[in-house]
Design a protein around this nucleic acid. Structure first.
Length: 314
DNA sequence: AATAAGGTCAACCGCAAGCGA
DNA sequence: GTCGCTTGCGGTTGACCTTAT
């Protein structure tokens, strides 16, 4: 193919960066900005490839990099996001301020992946990117999204009736007004974020769907009504699957009020299994359990806007 | 104490998307 | 429309560190 090298390799240094090189790079970028990475090494006086400079800056020298071990919350986020978008490390990193894609990738490969594999929560070959797998994945997203919409719809009705009740209370103070529940929907937030966007693009290219969003929109309104169970049935379902406000079971021994970064390693295998295994856990999509109920349990929120996983971990 | 084995993580490599000429 | 360049991304490598024997 005769592909041109990324830079002139002759005389360029490779391998670990020295503190002196770091200082030169930081000083230059802080006073000039990085501009063109290709020309930066020459302008800054570094015997490095521009690509190497960019990597060093973005993965190590950037002032907003958060060093140190991953917090339990970050670990949970990584697991959740990886279940959604797969090995889209940059997408996952975008949801974790201060963390780099490289760092997350390393952490996944050296800690989380091994552990999930050992526990049978992850299949050894996660590279199933076939259209069939993409369609399955897409269907699960769709199901979860519909349930989220249904919940919003229900809450909208609830809010409407509550405001009507409030109005009634003005004229008749004897009427008690239930408190409104500001319950932001985590799934919809994710769906409308970069993560969802990335997923839609990936799924569209894998399935050949020209506009996955449009197909979702087409179905959503009617389906949202269809998927909405009667309030009584719904409450029963929620109370069965969730201990804390629509969240997953609170796992004994998962109390991590110490804030230890070693939580994933410290908890027992059984606890970790319970932590992750909200659904059947016996299909090929691991965390989502192949069940919309399980999925939405993960992403439903409590009164404080925390995800259920947060609740489970406290 | 020496050495092997395993784990971790910074850095490299190659591919592909984006963009301007 | 195409070509070439630049940048960003994900997979992989290898040096270094820790633990086990």
């Amino acid at each position: 193919m005769g592909r041109a090298p990324c830079c002139d390799k002759s005389g360029l240094k490779k391998g670990p960066w020295t503190p002196e090189e770091d200082k030169i790079l930081v000083d230059y970028i802080q006073s000039h900005g990085h501009g063109s990475w290709r020309s930066l090494p020459k302008l800054a006086g570094l015997l490095r490839c521009g690509k190497s400079c960019r990597l060093r800056w973005t993965n190590y020298l950037r002032p907003d990099i958060k060093r140190g071990p991953f917090t339990p919350e970050e670990q949970k986020s990584i697991i959740q996001l990886h279940a959604i978008v797969g090995n889209k490390w940059s997408t996952i990193a975008a949801q974790l301020p201060g963390r780099t894609d490289n760092e997350i990738k390393n952490f996944w490969n050296t800690h989380l992946k091994k552990r999930l594999l050992r526990m049978g929560l992850l299949h050894p070959d996660p590279s199933d990117s076939s259209p069939a797998a993409a369609s399955r994945h897409m269907a699960q997203w769709e199901g979860a999204r519909l349930e989220a919409e249904a919940r919003l719809s229900r809450e909208s009705l609830f809010a409407h009736s509550a405001s009507a009740a409030a109005a009634a209370a003005v004229t008749n103070p004897a009427v008690s007004v239930p408190p409104l529940k500001p319950e932001p929907d985590f799934f919809l937030r994710i769906w409308n974020s970069e993560v969802g966007d990335s997923f839609r693009k990936t799924a569209a290219s894998a399935t050949g769907e020209s506009s996955p969003e449009s197909s979702f929109t087409r179905q959503s309104s009617a389906a949202a009504v269809k998927t909405e169970p009667p309030p009584a049935a719904r409450e029963e379902t929620e109370s069965k699957s969730c201990v804390t406000g629509g969240g997953p079971p609170v796992v004994a021994g998962m109390d991590d009020s110490s804030g230890s970064n070693e939580v994933v390693d410290d908890v027992s295998e059984e606890s970790y299994q319970l932590y992750l295994d909200f659904g059947s856990g016996d299909d090929d999509l691991g965390l989502f359990g192949g069940q919309v109920g399980a999925f939405s349990s993960i992403f439903s929120s409590d009164l404080n806007g925390e995800t259920s996983l947060d609740t489970a971990f406290k």
